[in-house]
Design a protein around this nucleic acid. Structure first.
Length: 283
DNA sequence: ATAGGCACCTGGTGGC
DNA sequence: TGCCACCAGGTGCCTA
């Protein structure tokens, strides 16, 4: 589910509930998600003041005043729900517990952060802030697509001589951070690049275009609060609505939205995952 | 080094 | 209604 815009949306929802406040209590309902939860997670979190929330690729990082950061990955089905804010920034009271509520964090300010993840492909860890960029999960991740280090020259360098299809190249977090199946399809459509085209075979001009379109589609999606296909919700429980703006994703056999095109959106499987594209507009 | 396939896990959907 | 196959927003790990 969650790609960069959804993770950014969740992080922005969590920030006002957590930043500057102290973790009062942590409830851990199972020993693991994708991996075992960090040892003594409760004790290491309880009493910690949350300094700031950040996002790196699809990871949410909560910096704690004791020198560690809580790292959160939502996997495919991870959801975060904030409830019970006495200041009225969030609309609802604490809801009844649901199936797959694995971790519950209660803040001193009365808010509750509930992590729910049916498939448990998500992860949590506690990692030192010092040398954090060298952490195994973060070390090899490419530049943030909305940051200054991401440009055409970067892609030229990374894609030089590569026979990998563009679809796979953009899904590879080592090349660029945070893109997933939806936004790769959408960005390639906007840039008019065929998903099967070899990465090393795209001109600098077109890569420059692609960079701009990747930025645009991510910004548009963040502004829309992310995409809600099945279970994604913002941290306040609201649905995102960028799914209504998809040009290709999940639009197999529907007409291409480019004026005068007339072709139908096609769906193919690339390395085991669905790719949607316009056979007429993407070359 | 790199590319492809599998694995992890649950739930929803559509066909028979 | 029941059963089954297939599909889903991710990514680490193993194999060639």
């Amino acid at each position: 589910m969650p790609e960069l815009p959804e993770v950014e949306t969740v992080m922005r929802g969590m920030a006002p509930a957590m930043e500057g406040d102290v973790i009062a209590r942590v409830q851990v309902n199972r020993p693991d998600l994708r991996w075992p939860l960090p040892t003594n997670m409760q004790a290491r979190l309880q009493g910690q003041k949350v300094i700031a929330l950040r996002r790196r690729a699809k990871y949410i990082l909560c910096d704690l005043d004791g020198g560690e950061s809580l790292l959160i990955h939502l996997g495919m089905s991870g959801r975060v729900l904030i409830s019970g804010d006495p200041l009225g920034r969030f609309v609802h009271d604490h809801p009844a517990a649901e199936k797959h509520d694995h971790i519950i964090i209660e803040m001193k300010n009365g808010t509750r952060i509930t992590y729910n993840d049916p498939r448990r492909f998500g992860a949590m860890d506690l990692i030192a802030q010092e040398g954090q960029d060298e952490h195994p999960l973060l070390a090899k991740i490419g530049p943030e697509p909305l940051g200054n280090d991401f440009d055409a020259q970067h892609l030229i360098n990374r894609f030089q001589g590569r026979a990998t299809p563009m679809k796979s190249a953009l899904l590879d977090q080592k090349n660029v951070a945070g893109l997933g199946n939806i936004y790769v399809c959408e960005a390639l459509f906007r840039a008019g690049i065929h998903p099967a085209r070899k990465a090393g075979n795209v001109s600098a001009t077109r890569l420059d275009d692609l960079v701009r379109h990747i930025r645009d589609v991510l910004r548009d999606a963040i502004e829309a609060g992310g995409s809600s296909l099945k279970d994604f919700r913002q941290a306040d429980g609201k649905l995102g609505y960028f799914q209504h703006s998809f040009d290709v994703y999940d639009r197999e056999a529907q007409p291409c939205r480019n004026a005068g095109c007339g072709a139908d959106i096609a769906r193919v499987t690339q390395s085991g995952r669905s790719t949607f594209y316009c056979p007429n507009c993407q070359r």
